[in-house]
Amino acid sequence: MGDETAGGAGRGDPPALTDHDPIATYDRIATHFSKTREYAWPEVESFLADRTAVRAIDVGCGNGRHTELLADRAETALGVDASRGLLREACTRAEDRGIDASFLQGDAAALPVTTGTADLGIYVATIHHLRPRRRRIRSLNELARVLDPGGVALVSTWSAAHDRFADVDPVADADVRAVTDEEGTPIGFDTTVDWTLPGGERVPRFYHVYTPAGFRTDLAASDLSIESFEVSSGNCYVTVRLEPGSASKE
């Protein structure tokens, strides 16, 4: 990949706090966030509708609302998240509902999951919290790595097509930062989206907001191939498979 090994560059150095914001942020808001994430997304339900699996993985599982759907159709369902606070919510929720799923704390860009182990995967509403761009692409490569050759996955991200971002001008607005690919073509922008706790306290969250075309660009740069791509409710939903011969891809 020509990129440094995941987790290798910073070892031994003081942690770069900016990189780790999502963990502290989601640990902080986990309980309230989880309460507002009770139900599965219809787009995820329809992706999973006719699928079964031996081993299924949910990357960025949050409170486990989608891991639960995987547990219904796979012999083994595994949820991975960076936030321990969210994983506690997920474990409690699974226990309360009698769901047979496993959860572990891990980084989407350095998955602690065996190569080629999952025949079904979901990676929804998570990649937009990763930065910089190379970590987002690395996370797509990690998803490709853990998929078995016949495996399929759903990847989603909040996108610039969302109404919320209709008036954002990545070049003119001071509070957002335009991101481009190697050729200088815009692929999206970095911004901050606050989470408001019940007491009114606002907790800032880092977001990279892809344009739909920009998300295609980064998927194309990864070891995943696009089977279908749709934009729904301002989110991009992409069905992906392992690109044939991806091991030799740059």
Binding site: A6, G7, G10, R11, G12, D13, P15, A82, R84, L87, R88, C91, F103, L104, Q105, G106, D107, A110, P112
Partner: peptide
């Protein structure tokens, strides 16, 4: 819950 985050 195993903590398998990279050490850094």
């Amino acid at each position: 819950i195993p903590n398998l985050l990279p050490p850094d």
